[in-house]
């Protein structure tokens, strides 16, 4: 089980996947909006999305868990 965490503070602009989806390492999971930039947060390992911890519009701080990948 892998926790995907935000690597910087920002707002969740888009959630690209849904719970249960299969993802590969390097696939974008969410896109943050921070410093007026789109910040893709990609999976570090492949697997299925067990849980999404954020919704579009949420603020996340650096280190906050975005998703759990199994």
């Amino acid at each position: 089980m892998n926790q995907l965490v935000a690597n910087m503070a920002g707002n969740v602009w888009k959630v690209v996947v849904s719970e249960g989806d299969q993802v590969n390492s390097g696939d974008d999971i969410v896109i943050l909006e921070s410093m007026k930039m789109e910040i893709p947060i990609a999976a570090e390992a492949g697997g299925s999305i067990k849980e999404l911890k954020v919704n579009e519009g949420d603020f996340v701080n650096e280190g906050d868990v975005i998703a759990i990948i199994e």
């Binding site: 690597n7 910087m8 410093m35 930039m37």
Partner: peptide, 10 residues
């Protein structure tokens, strides 16, 4: 590197 953290300096 805009692909990473928008290329913002930390």
């Amino acid at each position: 590197q805009p692909r990473m953290k928008g290329g913002v300096l930390f």
